[in-house]
Lab assay of single mutants.
Amino acid sequence: MAAAAAAGAGPEMVRGQVFDVGPRYTNLSYIGEGAYGMVCSAYDNVNKVRVAIKKISPFEHQTYCQRTLREIKILLRFRHENIIGINDIIRAPTIEQMKDVYIVQDLMETDLYKLLKTQHLSNDHICYFLYQILRGLKYIHSANVLHRDLKPSNLLLNTTCDLKICDFGLARVADPDHDHTGFLTEYVATRWYRAPEIMLNSKGYTKSIDIWSVGCILAEMLSNRPIFPGKHYLDQLNHILGILGSPSQEDLNCIINLKARNYLLSLPHKNKVPWNRLFPNADSKALDLLDKMLTFNPHKRIEVEQALAHPYLEQYYDPSDEPIAEAPFKFDMELDDLPKEKLKELIFEETARFQPGYRS
């Protein structure tokens, strides 16, 4: 834990890192770190609560700039109880001085990944967590956004079992017609939660990839272990087919990539493993919904509104309290091709509203 900075004593240090967030945020305490930044909790002297502050230093890398800009653009436009918001952003007053960006968010005690390492969940908890994931996802999908990296560590939890989806750095506007060349190379989302079509096709992607990830998360809540822990690309596919069985001819016809289709045709026939054999203690309604989410063919996979209306979630289902976005989200430009200098300018502009004396 960093010592509390005395008023006016300059930035606090946390594990050798400068955290320049005073005077409003003090009493910093280390939480963890990701690929390009550290997260601390801090005391907000204005709202009198502890908050989470993520320090991001992305400006050396085009990919990190892209992810940072995506996350900020999306989260500043989203407003939903099951999606983490941005409360404040701290950065230098000029673009030349801006080396880091500090993002202030609600402090959540833990995440689903940490929880599943230590606790076996009751059916009631599984049901409530799944409902909140789908409630947040309904809003995301209504904005025409794909999260693309749903996994237990991106689901934040607090002691009252509130759940918030975080990390929109890989999110995209849904565009089933656009052929994202190089899709697989830039697709760094965790393999275990990846839909089979991501490994088999490169053309376009749809909201059904997020539903697949939610199915993987439900299976993990039922058993405290990942359902498809593939060691590499082909191993991942083999794990999936080992449980779902061989795809039907109709399902194979959806695979545009001939090499991928021929690979699947070359494999020995596998039978589907019954879900109640894998999860003998699970609620039968939970397994019915799991089956509809972990469907090989993305066109037959359940959609988020149908999933919310499934009998497993009937005690929570309330369409009048499951809000959607006001308007579909649009990125003005494809960020993939922009140089990091341009992305830095866009991050600077996007964060201006939090600067003292800002006038829109």
Results as ranks from 00 to 15, higher is better:
296 F>I: 15
186 E>N: 02
32 G>S: 14
158 N>C: 11
290 L>I: 07
320 S>A: 04
293 M>E: 02
227 I>Q: 03
124 D>C: 04
60 E>M: 11
25 Y>P: 06
350 E>T: 00
109 E>T: 03
299 H>S: 05
97 Q>L: 15
115 L>W: 02
138 K>I: 15
57 S>P: 00
21 V>T: 13
202 S>T: 13
123 N>A: 10
126 I>W: 09
228 F>N: 01
38 M>E: 12
153 S>H: 05
6 A>V: 11
286 A>D: 10
203 K>W: 11
212 W>G: 13
30 Y>V: 00
105 Q>S: 07
84 I>M: 02
301 R>S: 14
95 I>H: 05
104 V>G: 08
298 P>Y: 00
241 L>F: 11
348 F>M: 13
91 R>G: 01
288 D>K: 04
105 Q>G: 10
35 A>D: 14
42 A>Y: 00
194 R>A: 09
323 P>R: 05
127 C>V: 11
40 C>D: 00
18 V>W: 04
213 S>G: 10
356 P>H: 14
58 P>I: 02
46 V>A: 01
68 T>S: 15
240 I>G: 02
53 I>H: 00
40 C>V: 04
210 D>K: 09
277 R>M: 05
163 L>D: 03
169 G>W: 02
295 T>E: 11
89 I>A: 06
216 C>S: 15
352 A>V: 14
31 I>N: 14
293 M>Q: 07
65 C>E: 05
354 F>M: 14
355 Q>A: 02
180 H>E: 12
273 V>K: 01
79 R>N: 02
327 A>Q: 09
302 I>Q: 13
275 W>S: 10
292 K>R: 13
271 N>E: 11
192 W>Y: 13
202 S>I: 13
100 D>Y: 15
43 Y>F: 13
237 L>D: 00
20 D>F: 11
102 Y>G: 02
254 C>Y: 14
213 S>T: 03
198 I>W: 08
289 L>T: 07
281 N>Q: 09
173 V>A: 12
293 M>D: 11
79 R>V: 08
226 P>Q: 06
272 K>D: 01
351 T>H: 01
214 V>P: 12
16 G>P: 09
59 F>S: 13
301 R>A: 08
59 F>N: 02
181 T>L: 11
306 Q>D: 05
47 N>E: 13
180 H>N: 15
249 Q>W: 05
227 I>L: 12
40 C>A: 00
210 D>M: 12
315 Q>C: 00
219 A>K: 12
259 K>R: 11
191 R>L: 15
245 G>K: 06
290 L>V: 03
146 L>H: 07
70 R>S: 14
310 H>Y: 07
291 D>E: 13
359 R>M: 14
316 Y>V: 09
223 S>I: 05
289 L>W: 06
277 R>K: 14
158 N>A: 13
117 K>L: 09
34 G>T: 02
238 N>E: 10
231 K>N: 14
172 R>Y: 04
199 M>D: 05
204 G>E: 14
276 N>V: 07
206 T>E: 13
